[in-house]
Amino acid sequence: MATLDIDLVLAPVDGSDESQQAVEHAIAIAEEYDATVHAVYVLGEDVARGIETGAVDESVVATDTESFTETVFDRADERGVSVTTSIAYGFSTKVKTTHPGSVILDTAEEVDADFLVVPREPVSGDPGEVLEKAAEYVLLYASQPVLSV
Results as ranks from 00 to 15, higher is better:
Glu110Gln: 12
Val61Gly: 04
Ala113His: 01
Glu45Gly: 09
Phe68Leu: 09
Gly54Glu: 04
Ala88Arg: 12
Asp112Leu: 13
Lys96Phe: 10
Tyr89Asp: 15
Gly54Leu: 05
Ala62Asp: 15
Asp57Val: 01
Arg49Phe: 12
Leu43Asn: 10
Ala76Arg: 00
Ala55Arg: 07
Thr84Tyr: 10
Glu66Cys: 15
Ser86Thr: 02
Ser59Arg: 15
Ser102Glu: 05
Glu70Ile: 09
Asp106Phe: 04
Asp112Gly: 06
Val72Lys: 01
Thr93Ala: 11
Gly50Glu: 05
Asp114Trp: 00
Phe91Leu: 07
Ala113Ser: 02
Ser102Arg: 12
Gly50Ser: 00
Val117Lys: 07
Lys94Val: 12
Val83Ser: 04
Val103Phe: 02
Leu116Ser: 11
Ser92Gln: 04
Leu105Trp: 01
Ile87His: 13
Gly54Ala: 09
Thr69Cys: 08
Glu70Lys: 11
Phe115Val: 02
Lys94Cys: 07
Ile87Gln: 05
Glu109Met: 06
Arg49Met: 14
Thr65Asp: 09
Ala113Thr: 03
Thr53Glu: 11
Ile104Asn: 00
Ser86Tyr: 02
Val111Tyr: 00
Val117Ser: 01
Glu78Tyr: 08
Pro100Phe: 00
Ala76Pro: 00
Tyr89Thr: 11
Gly101Pro: 03
Thr71Asn: 15
Gly90Asn: 02
Ala62Cys: 07
Phe91Thr: 06
Glu58Ile: 14
Glu58Tyr: 07
Gly80Ala: 06
Ser59Lys: 09
Val56Ala: 04
Thr97Ile: 11
Asp46Leu: 15
Asp46Pro: 09
Val47Ser: 11
Glu58Met: 13
Val118Cys: 00
Glu58Val: 11
Leu43Arg: 05
Glu66Thr: 15
Phe68Met: 00
